[in-house]
Design a protein around this nucleic acid. Sequence first.
RNA 1: GGGCUCUUAGCUCAGUCGGUUAGAGCGCGCCUCUGAUAAGGGCGAGGUCCGUGGUUCGAAUCCACGAGGGCCCA
Length: 1052
Amino acid sequence: MSRNSTSPFQPLPDELDFPSMERRILDLWAEQGAFEKLRAKNADGPRWSFIDGPITANNPMGVHHAWGRTYKDVYQRYRAMRGYHQRYQNGFDCQGLWLEVEVEKELGFETKRDIEAFGLEAFADACRERVDTYSAIQTSQSVRLGQWMDWDDSYYTHSDSNIEHIWGFLRRCHERGWIEVAQRAMPWCARCGTALSQHELIDTYQEITHDALYVRLPLHGRDNAWLLVWTTTPWTLAANVAAAVDPELTYVEVEMGDGKRYFLAEATLQEALGDDPHEIVGRIKGADMLGWTYDGPFDHLPAVAGTEHRVIPWKDVGADEGTGIVHIAPGAGEDDFRLSQELDLPVLVPIDENGVYVEGYDRLTGRDARQVADDVIDDLRGRGLLYRAHRFEHRYPHCWRCQEELVFRVDDEWFIRADEVRQPMLDAAATVHWVPDYAGARMADWLRNMGDWNISRRRYWGLPLPFYPCRDCGHLTVVGSKAQLEERAVSGLDGLRELHRPWIDDVVIRCEGCEAPVHRIDAVGDAWLDAGIVPFSTLGYLEGSEEFQRWYPADFITEMREQIRLWFYSMLFMSVTLENRSPYQSVFVYEKLNDETGRAMHKSWGNAIEFGEAAERMGADVMRWLYAGQNPLYNINFGYGPAGEVKRRMLTLWNVYAFFVTYARLDEFDPTQPEVPLAERPDLDRWVLSQLQTLIDTMTDALHTFHVHRGQRAARRFIEDVSNWYVRRGRRRYWKSEDDVDKQAAYQTLYEVLTTLVRLLAPVMPFWTEDIYQNLVCGVDPSAPESVHLTDWPQARDDRRDPGLDAAMAEVQRVVRAGRAARNAANVKLRQPLRSALIQVPDDAAWDAVQALEPHVLDELNVKTLERMASEHELVEFQIQPNYRRLGPRFGPRVKQAAAALAARDAAEAVRELDERGELTLDLGGAVETLTPEDLNVRRTPREGFGVAEQDGVIVAVATDVDDELGREGLARELVHATQGLRRDAGLEVSDRIRLWIGGDGEVEQTLTEHQAWIAGEVLAVAVNDGEATADAAEAAHTLNGMPVEIRLTRA
RNA sequence: GGGCUCUUAGCUCAGUCGGUUAGAGCGCGCCUCUGAUAAGGGCGAGGUCCGUGGUUCGAAUCCACGAGGGCCCA
């Protein structure tokens, strides 16, 4: 049978090597123009719009990006198979602080001054170049992942069009009176030289140790009396203007050993003074201290001179840490600044945008605020103002880009006021389908708490804010488009290469208010403006494009959860402002990616995995399967360990596929032959086809509702069933020699299963499914779509469903499980045939199922007959319990009495009564109740002993006695087993015919007499003990069932 | 300090509407198959469902409080 096959199916390689197979498929797709054909095929289909959240074109792709991109690709591919017309537009985030920081690193810059010295034009070029480099790299990596996008149509947020759309949005905000400039205390990164907005602060708190100081400040008009204040930010002391107390709190005046008297909150005494000897000499309410004045810690500095320092009220002072008296520096703290607005305090801003002390601070001037703690301590100590310094660990915000500690600084910042748009945004968010649904709650929470949107950044490569304030008339001109800019420009247009600094800064326009020439502010915009406008800018909103009408709002977006308060938020803000509706209808969020031990991945920790390396080591399909199977509620633990598990599980499918191809080639199976009618196929076929329909339902529902991981769970189980039951139970059908209807049915069924399954899995594993599809379908049917991704999504066929068969097979599988356990318990190996199995199933329907599918049970358990247990009483013990689901509602509280009454009865007795009369009566405190079998749960446990096992309500006992006849039958199997082993050792092909010699004692000879034909058939022997063994015969000696046996064989 | 969320086997995770004996994969132990073969299969051991209290005839599931983890706000 080792003839040259004319089968259309190509033989499979020995091993499933994902990376090389994937590269081959990538070439195939490119050759075919498969993606272009898919788009053409669906051009007239219903529209399904997806917006790609832009990836920062800044670095090579990380494996965490691949997670999100897998989801994006899975759902787009699924929709494509359903015939939906899509945009397939990928996006890059191309400007803003991210990019600047990387370019600074690349150029070896330390501060903004280096950028200024380098020149803004050259810096802009460098940024643009980096975008070009990494957008190209990310594109090729995404292709490697198998993502299908229109890569030539990617959008870039640094484009003039994107910028113009933001201008239009800002103009609209201004028309509503939402744009304002205000002095605010902002979290500030001294290295980056810019403020951070509220949503940039999140996730940035880290444990850090600072110098904390107890400082004593002399009170005016009280001899030798001092306020004791506490601070964790020594650099801010120079900007002190007030000390805050809680009016409700009780303060004490204590006299120290040296005669000095300190004021501090009573509750903080122990922590502040520790063991220093002191005596309480008075008590006072905070309210009574208000208005006291004192000498500030740095009054001798020119910048501070003449500033009055006084005690002010603040209800949030608290006595948990410090002294209950809080040092207030409005120019260097958020709460401090707010208090200064309420109480009209002076605002001293001691540092510039780089965190360096400005003029007027003497020795501190020119120094970095984050590095002066020691000097401040020495200085205070030298002037007798320091009571005590200590190290203090607390959570403190850091810059999310450069990891530097943040400071707080008061500066002019531009805002979009959020109060008016808050409710409309909440309303719009409520229309969105959030998956998982808690994401919606998160968004609502965020929106309820959002502050005004700080949109200004003191940087270079970013959206130029089109704000032109007029010094003369005070009017603010907000330019809403390039046309408006050109129309109002008085100079600088000629050199306007693009809408970026430095070119845009040279354009001077006429003030809308008074026509005076006005200049743009020099700030650029928050990068989330860039990403947020994308639903509009990519669809030509400003030009009134029809595309916008067609594709807005998006059906679907997906990103990591943190994007709720970032991209999802900025898009929603802009869309509600412009169109008063949500720009997206369904949102899917997922969690974070960690390494396989659950630790965050960090390049510096050495546990980060490069995307390129992962793709080449584990394969893109394996990665995608791992990602798509993850429950998105939980962080994923990603690594080569989990990937290895995934690959091993895929081997199950590989084995089924390899099995099919091997025998289909041998038998030259032709899938184009007429179908064997379903009714003529055996139960096994009808069962697996019925299961397949259920899988189609589950997968379809899962992909439709953005729960791909649920579909994958079902697919895994199905593959297990196909391999472990369908193929294993049916394998002999493929290798028997007759070419009959049953064999044809077997091939057709397995073929249908495999070709349907690859279509169901194609969105998740685009490469391997393509590889299988090419082999199974394209070589057979020239008219078939040339790629699995050009096929239609499978439709479940109702004629193939058979719920009764599904249930019956499940029953049989339970019986087989219990039977195996019984054999195990009896310690009788499966190769030894046994006379019978006694079976107890819950009801007649289950018994009918077992009988209908009896051959499977007989074969699996290797027994001759099945018998229904007439009486199980000798084999099992009973427990009888109420069926609470029925009796609970019926009896209510009395169910406990029923349980007690049942427990009091002899269970075996009760079961007999139930069997004989079909009902059971119970006396519940006088009331006699009649219970039917449905009202009760009878639990059976095997009696101790051999050969009985219970499994999910099914009991199987095997008859363990082996008579001579059964013994020889078992021996025959042993002989086959040993012969097959020898065949393999001798290097024979599975289809090779052999001549066989078996030698042994009388029992062996007797066995041969009885079972020779069967043995010969099993091992493909054309002759048994025919003449003398030839010299070249392979031989082996065994002891089988205690008897010495010699086996020789040779190729016939 | 406030909010959201999670806590189930050694590990990673399922667990539907509150209802009989809480499941899977991996790992572990024992066994098995040998025509899917450097594979495959079975059986088994392994559980304080984080704790306490409550609602209920009945709680892994609902409620309250607490502990621990994660996230967010301040």
